[in-house]
């Protein structure tokens, strides 16, 4: 169970990116976090595994506090939190198998890591997961030889190799074409139930959020404006999240960390 209380994050003296956020995720639910770019979705996810340091607040995973962890204890906590990235973040020059096994880096020792002598159980698990996502025949191919959808599946398998207690997905479909992103969303959805794993997905495509998740959390300027089931996510909820934020949203969300996308999700992929 993930329990976030009063989470605040500000960069320097700018306006906070996240402000007094409370969120509780239980069981194996798939939660979509929607919001305009710069609303703090990415920062929220990165606060959970501490790639970004929260300014204040508390994040508890299965009862243990994450915010205060340091050094080896932090690394031990991180290996229980899988993460899937928008840009896949694979190591291009290594093989698919090496990328997947890298998910075990928190468990193996340095010698095993450098010589790639992973325990047999890890390799077995890697093959099983690769077969599950139907890319086992690419095991010895270089990661940059794969297509976008295949690369993201490698990213998902790498995260699952960690035997995570929770899976974070930061815009996992934003770099993919519509068909492939549907596949990845379906994959995340079914993996969540197969492995009984809570999954948090940052997503700007509201249609996909409604189709593949059972709970939607709306963020705007670092505050939660909606929390409910896809059925409850009405036009007024959408308006509350995106309202007034039109195409050039970079100015409106200026304090945001990195304005990476335009407002494409709002103007083109909007289902309503």
């Amino acid at each position: 169970m993930l329990e976030i209380t009063n989470l605040t994050k500000r960069y320097g003296n700018d306006a906070p990116v996240l402000e007094g956020l409370d969120l509780k995720v239980e069981g194996n639910s798939v939660v979509a976090i929607v919001g305009a770019s710069g609303a703090g979705k990415s920062t929220l996810l990165r606060c959970i595994n501490r790639l970004v340091e929260p300014t204040s607040g508390s994040i508890k995973l299965n009862g243990s506090e994450l915010v205060t962890l340091k050094g080896a204890a932090l690394r031990r906590a991180r290996r229980k939190i899988g993460m899937v990235f928008q840009g896949f973040n694979l190591i291009d020059r290594l093989t698919v198998m090496e990328n997947v096994l890298a998910g075990r880096l928190g468990y193996v020792n340095l010698y095993q890591a450098i010589t790639r002598r992973y325990p047999r159980a890890d390799i077995e698990r890697a093959f099983t997961l690769l077969e599950r996502v139907e890319i086992a025949h690419y095991a010895n191919k270089r990661a940059d030889a794969l297509s976008g959808g295949e690369r993201q599946r490698v990213g998902v398998v790498r995260a699952l190799m960690q035997e995570p207690k929770i899976l974070l997905a930061d815009e996992p479909t934003a770099s993919l074409d519509p068909r492939t992103s549907e596949q990845i969303m379906r994959l995340l959805q079914s993996l969540a139930s197969e492995l009984s794993l809570p999954v948090l997905i940052n997503i700007h495509n509201v249609a996909q959020a409604k189709a593949y998740t059972e709970r939607i959390v709306g963020l705007r300027h670092g505050k939660m404006t909606f929390d409910g089931t896809p059925d409850e996510f009405t036009k007024s909820a959408l308006e509350a999240i995106y309202g007034g934020i039109e195409a050039p949203d970079d100015e409106l969300t200026a304090p945001a960390a990195k304005p990476r996308k335009g407002a494409r999700g709002v103007t083109h992929d909007d289902p309503l």
Partner: peptide
């Protein structure tokens, strides 16, 4: 390219 397909006894070495 993938090692022995027999379930349960698969190994992998870096090419």
């Amino acid at each position: 390219s993938a090692p022995s397909p027999r379930q349960g006894r698969r190994t992998w070495r870096k090419p």
